[in-house]
Computed example of a mutant assay.
Amino acid sequence: MKYKSVFDIIGPIMIGPSSSHTAGAARIGKVARSLFRRQPSWVNVHLFGSFAKTYKGHGTDVAIIGGILDFDTDDERIIDSIKIAEQQNMNIQFFEEEAVTDHPNTVRIHMGDERSEMELVGISIGGGTIEIIELNGFELKLSGEHPAILVEHTDRFGCIANVANLLAKHELNIGHMEVSRKEVGKKALMIIEVDENIDDEILAELEKLPNILAVTKIVD
């Protein structure tokens, strides 16, 4: 992992004690909240590796729930986030998993409500830097560092070009883009990081394109 500056190593302004176990965990929770678009009524948190061994001492548990409550890494309410979530009738469970993962700081968050549910896998790389590596069974690489959109679509010819052309029409530069699919011709997922936030009007245009199922924005 290459760091761009000393601040990537020191980590962000945060509630301690650890940039990887606390700030990174909070950021993973916050991205999960953004992807789900609302606060869930239940959350199952599966912790792997170092996360599973040290999550209580390093505050990984309260950090993840704080992120899901949409608290920033420096929000003092993170300390009491589990209590706050339970007061808001959120059902929370933590699971210490023994399976070996590619990265020691790995968490799988499964959450939902009466309308829908979502599952993602995130890793905390260090210095508060994270990656979301799986979403609802789709492999991806999402840093959370830049504004991004996730486009669920049917795997059809021309769909990716249509999305890229619409963004180009609005002079939005794509910094990173990848596509994941489970089966040819079935549901697929585009992950597009851009240089600036995307207006809701553009999202509405994207949703009207052929074979687009849903568009979700992640704000930097």
Rank of each mutant, 00 (worst) to 15 (best):
I160T: 14
A168R: 13
I92Y: 06
A52R: 04
I28M: 05
G112L: 10
I174M: 12
L47C: 10
V45K: 01
G29F: 08
T216V: 14
I64S: 00
N89M: 10
I191S: 13
A148Y: 09
A168H: 10
P147M: 08
T73N: 07
A204F: 10
G137R: 07
I160Q: 08
G67S: 03
V219W: 00
E76R: 14
E114L: 13
I123G: 03
T216Y: 12
P17R: 11
S34W: 05
P12H: 05
V219M: 12
E117Y: 11
S116K: 15
F51A: 02
V151I: 15
F94A: 00
L150N: 04
D72C: 02
L35N: 07
S50P: 00
S41Q: 13
P40Q: 12
I109W: 03
I10A: 11
R27S: 05
D113F: 10
I218R: 07
A25L: 01
H21A: 15
A148H: 10
K83G: 00
L209A: 07
M118F: 11
N105M: 11
P147F: 04
L167G: 03
I15C: 09
S124G: 15
I92W: 03
V6Q: 12
L35E: 05
R108S: 07
T54R: 11
E193F: 02
I125C: 05
V62H: 08
F95M: 01
I109R: 02
G59E: 05
H146T: 08
G175Y: 04
P104A: 08
V151T: 05
I64G: 01
K182C: 00
M190H: 09
V194T: 14
H103M: 14
V163H: 08
R181L: 13
E119C: 12
D155Q: 05
L140R: 04
E119L: 11
R77D: 06
Y55H: 14
I123F: 11
E201W: 05
K187M: 07
I192A: 07
A148N: 08
D113S: 09
I9D: 00
G127K: 05
H170P: 02
E96H: 01
R77H: 10
I174Y: 10
L142D: 04
V194H: 02
K186F: 06
I82M: 03
P104V: 09
I92K: 05
T129Q: 15
